[in-house]
């Protein structure tokens, strides 16, 4: 390890918190998705760091799965964004607060 594992965890948690903040605070649908991306990345950083800490490859393999998952998630969610935008002509989340099918 080039740095103490704690420092890496601190970096990852800062990134995660920034992503979480984006999800909670921003009202733009695109920005919320970007926040989700940031959080996923932060967890990827922890996995790679753990992989380097314990000298095992499993963490890196998990990151690959994480990336596959993210790309699937992004493709679906962006398709949903386009769909929602077509219905309401906006991507402000406050426009989607009524629960109708």
């Amino acid at each position: 390890m080039i740095v103490p594992f704690q420092h890496l965890l601190i970096l990852a948690s800062i990134l995660f918190l920034l992503g979480l903040m984006a999800v909670l605070v921003r009202r733009n649908l695109i920005m919320i998705l970007i926040g989700v991306e940031i959080m996923l990345n932060a967890s990827g950083l922890v996995l790679v760091g753990a992989s380097a800490f314990w000298q095992q490859l499993d963490g890196q393999v998990m990151v690959i799965f994480l990336m596959a998952l993210t790309s699937a998630e992004v493709s679906i969610s962006l398709a949903m964004v386009v769909y929602l935008n077509r219905r309401k002509k906006t991507i402000d989340v406050r426009a989607f607060d009524e629960l109708r099918g």
């Binding site: 799965f65 596959a68 790309s71 493709s75 679906i76 398709a79 386009v82």
Partner: peptide
């Protein structure tokens, strides 16, 4: 994971087509 990607592709296609 590859199945998941396949489902994602199908799902995206479905949503896009519905729109």
């Amino acid at each position: 994971v590859s199945f998941q990607l396949l489902f994602a592709a199908v799902g995206a296609f479905y949503v896009g087509r519905a729109a």
